[in-house]
């Protein structure tokens, strides 16, 4: 505890960096997964291809991906962009399926009614399909958020600092309090992300709770 009291400033600075490295890819990943998931629904032959491809991406060890990034992107080794891009890839890998299944969960009768009323293209997507897919997408987003918070800590090994530094440093110097602080901070951050997404979902889907209210 003494160690923690002496290092509040460091912990907050690392946490802030962690939020960026885990959070920004979550947003970028969702934006990329939306059209991909939509395409997987739209062309049924694309679905298995996209799902297996994204599944494969997720099996690449994070350390390998972090190390490969400078080679692929031509960035400097210590560039934070390496981590952001790698984490975005993981997020996309998790969310493509979620988005596709979320759009698939929209009732057929509703889609048909939308079509029959003259909804088309983007207006149908943003007006009817996407709002109804929010509960499923939000569930996937929560998984991705927690997974991102945990995976990002590996970035310490390539010299990009965030809460993972507390783990590596604590391990090197045998400071148990530092390791515990790192773990607790990661868990708190994961809970925070989770809570934010849940809040967002509730705000976006008042109709889901109305449904629960009747049952």
């Amino acid at each position: 505890m003494e160690w923690v009291n002496d290092h509040w400033g460091d912990i907050f600075a690392l946490a802030r960096s962690h939020v960026w490295l885990a959070g920004l890819p979550l947003v970028l990943g969702l934006l990329i997964a939306l059209p991909l998931g939509w395409a997987a629904r739209r062309w049924s032959r694309l679905y298995p291809v996209l799902i297996s491809a994204s599944g494969l991406l997720y099996t690449i060890p994070s350390l390998a991906l972090f190390v490969l990034m400078p080679l692929i992107l031509g960035t400097r080794v210590l560039d934070r962009a390496n981590v952001v891009v790698a984490m975005t890839i993981y997020t996309v890998a998790l969310l493509v399926r979620t988005v596709a299944d979320g759009l698939g969960s929209v009732p057929e009768a509703t889609l048909q009614a939308a079509r029959a009323m003259g909804y088309k293209g983007l207006r149908r997507f943003f007006g009817v399909e996407l709002p109804l897919a929010v509960p499923v997408i939000a569930a996937g987003l929560r998984v991705a958020a927690v997974s991102n918070v945990s995976i990002v800590s590996v970035a310490s090994l390539i010299g990009v600092s965030q809460l993972g530094n507390l783990l590596t440093d604590g391990y090197d110097r045998f400071i148990t309090a530092e390791i515990v602080a790192g773990i607790v901070a990661c868990v708190v951050l994961a809970l925070l992300f989770d809570g934010l997404i849940l809040l967002g979902q509730r705000l976006l889907t008042p109709w889901v709770r109305a449904q629960g209210g009747r049952a």
């Binding site: 009732p107 009768a109 509703t110 048909q112 009614a113 939308a114 079509r115 029959a116 009323m117 003259g118 909804y119 088309k120 009817v128 709002p131 109804l132 889907t205 109709w207 449904q211």
Partner: peptide
């Protein structure tokens, strides 16, 4: 035009097909 045609035709289906989120 498909969309224009449809907006000029009322359509009612079996389970109403209402938008659950509205």
């Amino acid at each position: 035009n498909e969309a224009q045609l449809r907006r000029g035709i009322g359509y009612v289906i079996q389970h109403a097909g209402l938008f659950p989120h509205r």
